[in-house]
Write a protein that binds this DNA or RNA. Structure first.
Length: 152
DNA sequence: GCCAACGTTGGC
DNA sequence: GCCAACGTTGGC
């Protein structure tokens, strides 16, 4: 079992949208490192912290899980999509994704500010300065502590 | 809206 | 393969 964190702008797709959909193909990731995490390392059942970015108070707001194995992101071939990638070819798709499933919306969010101010989270990627990776691994100890705080 | 940090592109 | 220029992310 691996643990992850995914960032999303709630204006675009937030935890409430995931709750409503139940399941969502995680389209639009166009960073190789983030893609590699989904394509090479994610397993069905992995637990995923859901993070809201680009809001007044960014932070972790809920829990998702990996529902599928990786497959080609269909938006890369869709001319109408903002994620269309003219350099990707059908026979060898450049971008892969997994489906995320809704697990829960936390009763208490944990803000980026709180993570940054707590030495326990000092080496958590999302709390590090300049860290923009939208799909990132989370250590089990950090995952467990986030859950404990968000659920109480 | 500013801009620091980081990733990607492409000329050489 | 270096690195300058450019584009994007995302906190503030």
């Amino acid at each position: 079992m691996n643990y992850w964190l995914i960032k999303s702008e709630p204006d675009d797709f937030g935890i409430d949208d995931l709750a409503r959909q139940g399941q969502e193909p995680w389209t639009g990731v166009r960073n190789y490192q983030a893609r590699n995490h989904m394509r090479d390392l994610m397993q069905v059942g992995d637990q995923v912290l859901f993070y809201h970015s680009n809001v007044p108070r960014p932070g972790i707001v809920g829990l998702a899980e990996v529902l599928t194995k990786p497959y080609a992101d269909p938006t890369q071939f869709n001319l109408e999509s903002e994620y269309f990638d003219p350099k990707s070819i059908l026979e060898n798709p450049r971008w892969q994704l997994v489906d995320m499933g809704f697990v829960e919306k936390f009763p208490h969010e944990i803000s980026l500010e709180e993570l940054k101010n707590d030495p326990f989270f000092a080496d958590m990627l999302v709390a590090k300065r300049g860290q923009r990776l939208s799909v990132q691994p989370v250590a089990k100890k950090h995952f467990t502590e986030v859950l404990r705080r968000c659920r109480t």
